[in-house]
Amino acid sequence: MSEENPPEAPSEETAAAPERTEAAKPGPGLLEIRDLMVVFDGFTAINGVDLTVGEGELRFLIGPNGAGKTTLIDVITGLTKPTSGTVRFAGASLAGRKEHQIVRLGIGRTFQTSVVFEELSVLENIDLAASFRRPLASLLRRRKGVTDEVASALETIGLRDLADRPAGILSHGQRQWLEIGMLIAQGPKLLLLDEPVAGMSKDERERTGELLTEIARDHTVIVIEHDMEFLRRYASTVTVLHEGSVLVEGDVAAVQADPRVQEVYLGRKKEEAA
């Protein structure tokens, strides 16, 4: 994906007050981020981000390359330590927690490149992912049958017919679904998905959109995405990041129509957007 060089940043007054439509107002905050700053060797990657994601939301996070999207997810999952600010999940502060501790709190994440065990079957991949909640001694015993959470995850991602096939034979899209299934089997409250439809065929993108909609009935989901067609079809609430700050927040129609988004994300100048 080519790098984009966004035009001149909006004024300080504009950047300090991101727009929010009525549709974007969240419910009770499952994830609450306040005044978040991340600075790497003098470079400000995240600049005073405030973000609230309500329980049960399917939130899309967009912005040009370098906007701070992945860094924000890295902070939530404990991969990157913030310079200042707070991140709270289900009322608990994530400050100082290690990555595995954050997973146990109920936060799961996928990366742009799927990570599955190719030699293991689809079922074994999901069962292994679910095993982190089981006592160590039980992992040394031969498994008998399939647990409810594993069976449910397998059904949700639509790979039941391939349960006994090695993961290495799966298509790109199926691998992404398997990784999502591995997260679901861990029983998370919040799923963070980094560009889940990148490289997928049209049919795979449609199936992934349906899958995300289904998952969001029982989970809170944050999706980093660049595919604008996918965004228009499946997003309800969208947060736009630009140069490490929240630029605009609202429903799809309002975000698309905003001249600042057209300028910094879609690459249109103000006079063209008018």
Score class of each variant (00 low, 15 high):
residue 2 S to K: 14
residue 64 P to A: 08
residue 228 M to P: 06
residue 102 I to V: 15
residue 191 L to F: 03
residue 43 F to D: 02
residue 188 P to D: 07
residue 182 M to I: 04
residue 170 L to V: 08
residue 151 A to I: 10
residue 118 E to W: 09
residue 94 L to Q: 07
residue 128 L to N: 06
residue 49 V to D: 01
residue 185 A to R: 09
residue 163 A to I: 09
residue 103 V to F: 05
residue 126 I to R: 11
residue 216 A to D: 02
residue 209 G to S: 05
residue 94 L to T: 06
residue 252 V to C: 02
residue 94 L to P: 08
residue 129 A to T: 08
residue 103 V to P: 03
residue 206 E to I: 12
residue 242 H to V: 09
residue 143 R to H: 00
residue 107 I to D: 02
residue 257 A to Q: 09
residue 157 I to Q: 09
residue 68 G to Q: 10
residue 12 E to S: 13
residue 135 P to G: 04
residue 185 A to V: 02
residue 49 V to P: 06
residue 19 E to H: 11
residue 87 V to M: 06
residue 167 A to R: 08
residue 104 R to F: 13
residue 104 R to I: 05
residue 263 E to G: 03
residue 38 V to P: 09
residue 40 F to C: 11
residue 97 R to I: 08
residue 94 L to W: 10
residue 117 F to I: 07
residue 184 I to S: 12
residue 183 L to G: 01
residue 108 G to Y: 05
residue 187 G to V: 06
residue 88 R to Y: 14
residue 150 V to S: 04
residue 268 R to F: 09
residue 141 R to G: 01
residue 23 A to H: 13
residue 168 G to D: 07
residue 153 A to T: 12
residue 242 H to T: 02
residue 193 L to Q: 05
residue 14 T to G: 01
residue 200 M to L: 08
residue 236 S to W: 06
residue 270 K to S: 12
residue 254 A to E: 05
residue 221 V to L: 02
residue 54 G to D: 02
residue 206 E to S: 06
residue 44 T to V: 15
residue 135 P to I: 09
residue 71 T to C: 07
residue 108 G to L: 10
residue 56 G to I: 01
residue 83 T to V: 01
residue 89 F to Q: 05
residue 154 L to F: 01
residue 230 F to C: 00
residue 155 E to Y: 09
residue 194 D to T: 06
residue 191 L to Q: 03
residue 205 R to A: 11
residue 153 A to V: 05
residue 159 L to Q: 04
residue 273 A to K: 05
residue 25 K to G: 03
residue 208 T to Y: 12
